[in-house]
Design a protein around this nucleic acid. Structure first.
Length: 255
DNA sequence: GTTGGGCTGC
């Protein structure tokens, strides 16, 4: 059934782009040949640098071909770009994670669903469903506005302080939401004094040790007679509140 | 000689 007539996808794989190339530049260039669904420049997950290639997805494959033939080996941003048709589908985050774990070479799909007519539901949401204009005419390229960036990248932008270098490999990001056992939560609870400490609190002279929050019951129950009950209560509340914040708190409060 | 999105679900 495989037809040799055309490539299976409408995405172009653009190689050797300048690392200063931005999606808007590419979109401007490639958009001349047809409506573009998506432009994406993969970044190195750890270094946040461009990896030197980009993906341009067209709405129509013949536009992609057109762009390919016209822009291939052309000089863009001081670099001679090379264009091919992209292979495979875009990866979902899950696949990226497993890819890190396993060898990129030996990656295999879930299994061969050749008989199953249901394709993998790529209906995630990376792809923005843009309603195409009622009129079939292609919209002028200059009508592309920078606000058109996809929702997904916007999310990632929002957490970016990224003034400079990357923070360590985010494998610790796995912040399992709910620990069923209370024992595990005390164990996995890592002390983050800077975050859990409200700025407004000043009278509390806590100069001795940040670990006082996690006093073992053996010694704490004995001393601090008067304030013990109220303090323990408020502490428990503040903890649970900071818990529910999770991502949001980390994003804005992250320093 | 780089083939993709690293937060997704009840």
């Amino acid at each position: 059934m495989a037809r040799y007539l055309r490539p299976p996808n409408t995405s172009l794989f653009v190689r050797n782009i300048a690392d200063e190339s931005r999606p808007e530049d590419l979109r401007r260039e490639f958009g001349r040949y047809g409506p573009i669904v998506d432009v994406y420049i993969p970044l190195d997950f750890y270094t946040r640098r461009t990896r030197g290639f980009a993906y341009i997805q067209f709405e129509d494959v013949r536009d992609a071909e057109d762009a390919l033939h016209n822009l291939d080996r052309k000089w863009v941003c001081g670099r001679q770009i090379e264009i091919q048709f992209a292979q495979g589908d875009r990866k979902t985050p899950n696949q990226m994670k497993s890819k890190e774990r396993h060898s990129p070479r030996s990656f295999s799909r879930y299994d061969d669903d050749r008989d199953s007519r249901r394709r993998r539901s790529r209906s995630r949401s990376y792809e923005r469903h843009r309603s195409r204009s009622p009129s079939y005419e292609r919209r002028p390229r200059r009508s592309e506005s920078p606000r058109d960036s996809r929702s997904y990248s916007r999310h990632k932008r929002s957490r970016s302080h990224e003034n400079e270098k990357y923070r360590g490999p985010p494998r610790e990001h796995q912040r399992t939401h709910h620990e069923p056992g209370l024992r595990s939560r005390s164990a996995s609870r890592s002390p983050s004094p800077s975050r859990s400490r409200p700025k407004g609190k000043k009278s509390q002279s806590r100069s001795h040790s940040p670990a006082e929050d996690f006093h073992p019951t053996s010694s704490s129950q004995k001393q601090s007679v008067g304030r013990s009950p109220s303090r323990s209560y408020s502490r428990s509340m503040s903890r649970s509140r900071s818990r529910s914040r999770s991502w949001a708190g980390r994003k804005s409060g992250g320093h």
